[in-house]
Design a protein around this nucleic acid. Structure first.
Lengths: 182, 182, 182, 182
DNA sequence: CATGAATGAGTGTTCATTCAT
DNA sequence: AATGAATGAACACTCATTCAT
């Protein structure tokens, strides 16, 4: 099963979306087409599994980061989360791009990253009521989640040439902190 | 040509991506399949044109907003831009979603929205040096562009149930202003 | 594979070249169109295989004739070869005509019949040096191959009404013998 | 009309048979597709005209040769006819090959060259009864026509490397004369 | 006469899926 | 469980032909 998904990724990266045929995936995976259908009911299921695997990998990193910084000051947490998001997008930017722009998704149960991040932030914020006061947490989470998603993604992949990666990350943290402290 | 693109949109919204066949587009557009191929070399070209049209429509709105507020105070400009982005995403959220998640793109010359926004912001910032000081404009533009993209998109489509649209927009403006004034 | 080629021939003879569509071939062959493409990469490949099969069949007859008359006097050999060529053209004149005038070929590795015959004759001549003398064998082969091809083909298909098949064959042999003995 | 046929030839030679579309012919000819249909009822008609033009050109040469040598000795006539056939095949061997192997024909009223040649030879033979005696002219014509066709064509295009063009032509004449004098 | 946009039947080909072995 | 030959619906695309201008 893992081999099949890996094969799908390999085909995707080597030859593009239009080359992903079930037969080709089977061939690259080194199994028969029949075996592919033993594990996946149809082609969509392969795409969904591909997305889910990718999403779970990223979510795991984020959760670990939050847990690791449960007791840390806010700035450290945010810095770590920016780091995590940038890494996630840097790790395999090509795959990430292809997966989100080329491979039909939605319809898998996966909400978008920014949406999932909001939940994470609500928990992190609730745990820091004394530091942040009793402002509406869903509002903070909404803004922070979107800032983190966009700035992390942007720092990794959409920086202007004059901006170094370190500067972009630093600026992302600064912007989020400024917002929180206002 | 416009009729063909409209037909493609109609098919896309009515029956989903997998229903967009060149023959079906022609049928809905009320032209023969031959005529479709007189104007578009192949199916991909239809998708690219669809994207380009959509992107140009959004860019036009943004530009008009910036021009209309060229002399206005920063807060008014930001408020108007948030409004424009939210509207763009609200106008036809289904089409927008489908276009960016279902229809294979890239390979048209279109950079992502956040990237195009950075350019717009650099101009707007350069024109307000006296108000903003001489801080590095590409850095400000980088952050603002990503905030606007993410928060605008989020306000329209990813709000938590406790947050009204007006509140989300207001908060987006506030966050951007806070960042700028820090 | 053989069934597919047979079907192609059947379609060709029944309905003419323009009726040979891959789907029709599959239908007549009693296999699915998918199976046709499992064995032939594209339509041209079917034509090429058709030609090759036809050519090989004829070449086999010629070779057998030569072998069978390896020790026979020249006249007997020539008589047998005329017979073989006439038969080849008479056996299925329609198919032969269609194959060479209607079905695009060349590009398969097949040289023309007259060219292949030259090789055969060179061998047959080399084996009869004592009977024929040491005249340049490639010159004899050149003339004989072309005479055999043309007169055999002509006897089968282009006889004037006053000339019986037997007479035409007899005259062909006579002409070739006369040339050889001059 | 001539321009259209020329364009067809140009397309044929440049891009092969499968590239000959009526629209392309019109484009290369510099006329509109409508005009093509003003002069030719359909595509087949273009092919037929192409063949007819080619055939008439060759037939004209043969006739001129026969007329020019009406009073000449047999050997001179045969030598001149071999020359004419070789020239016809050498002039534009590519076009000739394509026309006879790639472009569907038959169904135009044109009989094959060897068949048309038989008629020519019958006349030439009848005019030389005193030289040739009263042998059955259709039999002589049958053999000579096929020899001329095959050896002329072969001398131009299917010579073995050891045989020069001059030798091949000389041998063709010799073979025909030998046959006639036997 | 000329034009060329429009037509649409028909073609080659693909590829997700099945199922007997 | 694994195989892979076979399937055939469905698709993108072509191109001979028409006809209003």
């Amino acid at each position: 099963m893992e081999a099949i998904l890996d094969a799908a990724v390999r085909v995707l990266k080597r030859d593009g979306v239009s080359a992903i045929t079930t037969n080709r995936i089977a061939e690259i995976a080194g199994v028969s087409i029949g075996s592919v259908y033993q594990y996946f009911p149809d082609k969509r299921a392969i795409f969904i599994a591909l997305h889910r695997r990718h999403v779970e990998e990223i979510d795991r990193r984020i959760e670990q980061t939050v847990i690791a910084h449960a007791a840390a000051p806010l700035e450290a947490l945010l810095r770590a989360m920016v780091e995590a998001v940038v890494e996630a997008h840097s790790a395999d930017p090509v795959l990430h791009e292809l997966l989100s722009t080329q491979v039909p998704h939605r319809g898998d149960g996966t909400r978008e990253f920014a949406q999932r991040l909001q939940g994470v932030f609500r928990l992190a914020i609730s745990a820091r009521t004394n530091e942040l006061g009793r402002r509406r947490p869903e509002r903070l989470a909404f803004v922070l989640a979107h800032m983190l998603d966009a700035l992390g993604h942007g720092a990794a992949l959409r920086r202007p040439p004059e901006l170094s990666l370190a500067e972009a990350k630093q600026e992302a943290v600064r912007a989020m902190l400024t917002y929180l402290k206002a």
